[in-house]
Computed example of a mutant assay.
Amino acid sequence: MGTLSGKIAVVTGGNSGIGLSAAKIFADEGAQVVITGRRQQAVEEAIAQIGAGALGIQGDVADVAHHDDVAQQIRQRFGALDIYMANAGLNTITHSAEVSEAEYDAQFAVNTRGVFFGVQKLIPIMRNGGAIILTGSLASEKVLDGHAVYAGSKAAINAFARSWAIELKFRCIRVNVLSPGPVDTAILEKLGLPFEQRGPFEKAMAEAIPLGRMGQPEELAKAALFLASDASSFVTGINLRVDGGMALL
């Protein structure tokens, strides 16, 4: 039996990158996995990769009604929830002087508002002893060029986790943040990094990371599994940096 056998897990943004890798490892460890994503086709393709009876719900985490829909579907299908990984995120690298209102609003809508109301709507159906994992970022602690808005939106996640860890202590629901450093995912393409610049970019990242390389989505997924499972049964309110030591430099 897997470490998550009998558990119901929801992963937002579970159709790619860290979210998809986490969904896969949760399913491999016996959980019934439900992922959410904005694009129906991407959700369906991810479901095929996850297997194990995984389910997908299309929607935008910035829309509070979407979280109501997810909660209702989980309640109807499974009765309750054990693991909620608020992973969906958006990053636009722009210097502060050039940030538009639309860029600012979009990042806070997904990274902050989406996390807050997702947790708010899912807590009522979460079983006592459940686990909430919020995907944060190294940027909330370390200044990165062009990341001011993103950093601010992710810094709020750390405050949410501390507050919720106390608010939910009587239900023994653990709330933790998983903060990745640079990870080799499709987000590099989404940020507009041309293929020919990948080599120099990865070399620069390796030089900035004590372990000498970017992280892999599977490594973040293993950390998420730790926070989701009983292996972390005495851990709540922490910010777990999985960054190859980059925050130290």
Rank of each mutant, 00 (worst) to 15 (best):
M1K: 13
G6A: 00
A9D: 04
V10R: 09
V11C: 07
N15F: 03
N15A: 11
G17H: 09
Q32E: 10
V33M: 03
R39S: 01
A42N: 05
A48T: 06
A52W: 10
V64G: 00
Q76D: 14
R77A: 12
L81M: 13
A86Y: 06
A86N: 13
A88R: 10
T94C: 11
S96V: 14
E101Y: 05
A109K: 05
V115C: 02
F116C: 04
F116Q: 05
F117G: 02
G118L: 09
I125C: 08
R127Y: 03
A131Q: 10
L134I: 14
L134G: 00
S140H: 12
S140N: 09
G146L: 02
S153V: 03
W164L: 15
L168G: 05
L168K: 04
K169D: 07
F170W: 01
F170V: 13
V175Y: 03
S179F: 01
Q197Y: 12
Q197D: 14
F201T: 10
A204D: 14
E207T: 10
G212Q: 04
E218W: 08
A223V: 07
A223Q: 00
F226T: 04
L227G: 03
L227M: 02
S229Q: 06
D230M: 07
V235Q: 08
I238E: 05
R241V: 07
D243P: 12
G245R: 01
